[in-house]
């Protein structure tokens, strides 16, 4: 029986619908919870978050593809808050898929930094098959891995990649990466662990700071999925982040990928925070950029409705469907 894990339990893939593949309810580096600079009362968090999710859900209803999916890419230690996600999903009708794993070695606290590949694998497997944090309803639907700051894979990053690959092979959960740079060591790990690359989304291939550092052609040729998942971090914003990029450049990047015939390997998201946890966030950027700016841009560029459906419905559904025994 095929299924996708959400914070409210597994759903049939047919229920998911239009999905943003790499988002954040709220992200912060480990330890930011100690600094009151960033604290907000829970009622403020809900006020900042619920309207964005509801608007996204309503856009999806108008579009006509299911309740919609919101894949949260906030790893263990980065402020992942399953109880909160459950309430948001239940109250907005949006399916929220939480991840296990880590944004990168930088985000793994000492307990996990000291852990073996085998322990990390068991942590990920438990969160996918049993539940997260003692909860047995909420299960992780995807595994997060990533490259530490500096664009160079560190030993701890790779230990996490290997553990994730093992958990993915066994549970059938997909993997998405923070950054698609320095992928040679990652490709070696995935090969050694026997993980097909269509179960891996190489994320943030489209961000401003990764350009020139991503072996996009190789990753595509090997069957990997490419993440155009920082849509909306435009340098045209009043106060763009350092990873921002010119809107038209990013759009052209995706259009080129589609024109080259790789629509089945494209996954798209906004990487926006509803309410950031340990940083100011980027004013004016929400997940709704996808409907309010990107889809009009794609249509204006002549992208067909079939292609849009493939990118935002078919691809995420196939990617997120657990394939135990097949990965």
């Amino acid at each position: 029986m095929s299924r996708i894990n959400t914070v409210l339990g597994p759903i049939a893939p047919e229920e998911l619908g239009f999905t943003a593949i790499h988002e954040h309810i709220g992200y912060g580096m480990p330890g930011c919870e100690l600094d009151t600079t960033w604290w907000k009362a829970p009622e403020v968090r809900y006020e900042e978050t619920v309207p964005k999710l509801r608007a996204f859900h309503n856009h999806i209803r108008e579009y006509g593809a299911g309740a919609g999916g919101y894949v949260d890419a906030t790893g263990i230690c980065n402020g992942r808050d399953i109880d909160y996600y459950k309430s948001l999903s239940a109250r907005t009708g949006l399916h929220i898929v939480a991840c296990t794993g880590f944004v990168g070695g930088d985000s793994a606290l000492p307990f996990f930094e000291r852990a073996s590949v085998d322990y990390l694998y068991r942590q990920f497997r438990h969160e996918i098959t049993v539940g997260i944090g003692g909860d047995t309803t909420a299960k992780a639907g995807i595994i997060k891995v990533g490259v530490s700051r500096g664009f160079k894979m560190k030993e701890l990053d790779l230990r996490i990649y290997r553990a994730a690959a093992r958990a993915a092979v066994e549970t059938g959960a997909p993997i998405f990466t923070h950054l698609a740079v320095d992928t040679d060591p990652a490709l070696a790990v995935f090969k050694e662990e026997g993980l097909p690359l269509d179960r891996v989304l190489f994320g943030h291939a489209d961000d401003g700071v990764s350009q020139g550092k991503v072996k996009q052609d190789l990753l595509t040729e090997l069957g990997g999925r490419i993440g155009f998942d920082t849509f909306g971090y435009d340098l045209e914003l009043p106060d763009p982040p350092f990873w921002g990029r010119h809107r038209q450049d990013r759009l052209n990047h995706l259009l080129g990928f589609l024109e080259a015939g790789h629509v089945k390997q494209a996954l798209v998201g906004a990487d926006a925070n509803c309410s950031p946890l340990g940083w100011p966030g980027v004013r004016g950027h929400t997940v709704n950029y996808i409907f309010e700016t990107l889809l009009p841009d794609l249509r204006a560029a002549g992208v067909s409705e079939d292609t849009i459906h493939t990118i935002f419905v078919t691809n995420p559904t196939e990617f997120l469907t657990l394939t135990p025994g097949k990965n």
Binding site: M29, P30, G31, C32, L34, D106
Partner: peptide, 13 residues
């Protein structure tokens, strides 16, 4: 080694 990433690799460039 006991510090979280917030103190070591903040989201600045």
């Amino acid at each position: 080694a006991m510090l979280g990433g917030y103190f070591l690799t903040p989201q600045t460039n």
